[in-house]
Design a binder for these strands. Sequence first.
DNA 1: GAAATCATTGGTCAGACTGCCCAGTGGATA
DNA 2: TATCCACTGGGCAGTCTGACCAATGATTTC
Lengths: 157, 157
Amino acid sequence: MAIDHLDGRLIVLLAREPRIGVLEASRRLGVARGTVQARLDRLQTNGVIRGFGPDVDPAALGYPVTAFATLEIKQGQGADVRAHLRGVPEVLEMHTTTGHGDMLCRLVARSNADLQRVIDRVVGFEGIMRASTAIVMENPVPLRVIPLVEQAAEDAG
Amino acid sequence: MAIDHLDGRLIVLLAREPRIGVLEASRRLGVARGTVQARLDRLQTNGVIRGFGPDVDPAALGYPVTAFATLEIKQGQGADVRAHLRGVPEVLEMHTTTGHGDMLCRLVARSNADLQRVIDRVVGFEGIMRASTAIVMENPVPLRVIPLVEQAAEDAG
DNA sequence: GAAATCATTGGTCAGACTGCCCAGTGGATA
DNA sequence: TATCCACTGGGCAGTCTGACCAATGATTTC
């Protein structure tokens, strides 16, 4: 879907100050309220904006340790492994990838010691042959989308 | 910070139906409105809930390709590389890690061909010695926090 | 060129919600 | 026992939402 310049400004504005409503947003953007409402509806319908769920910080929840694990899977065990990983709360996301590993997943844990427990639970499963883990030390660029939105808005004029 | 069982239910509820306000949430949870308000304030003050920003889907924005790149950095060039990566919109996040690579970053691109451009831009920088990229094929477990919240709520009783 | 389509504007309306206040209650603590 | 804290239930004014509407301007289609 193509992103308008106004769409971009709207998303950026909402990202910076989520609490402002449609009315205040329309004031800031200098357009009519109905326009903002229509744009928001469209963005949500097209899936560009998935929702406005709470942005939870695992560290503040008591899980300050993050790690990425690369898994090698026994042929044909993919489906089972997925179900297994889905059942582990500390697995925040999982991707299947090209390259040497077959899967890449993001883990969190309460401590480095606790990470051992999490990894044991993750890899303690039939179809997983090998796992290599990289512990995150710093996160200089936290997950972000705003620059991309601005880029997309720019591209579309 | 410790998470209450009520906190957990509140976060899960808000994650599922972000549009409901404080009042409706209090009805669903069977508590007074003031309680929900107080809990929300506390959760935000303690940083457990960072905010309620729009959840943007890069794929819907025109960037359906995701990849993870592992970078090896020349000693002492860390700071410069960070600034460089921060300036690339397609770099959605970056971590410094233990292990063979020094940095792990998540990239998106408009297509596999476009990914080449992004990678060139990412690695076309002084301090980066080597890069290996894994393209994401499937995402069986999309980024999630709810199970972790439920776990944390459970742990605290 | 003319007609039709579409997004936007600016306005109204009733209903609902928010933020804020208050007094009272119950449990836990000192 | 006295104090503190979280929760309850209530009320208040102000504001916002979602839903409409007619009019305007721009763009596309015939």
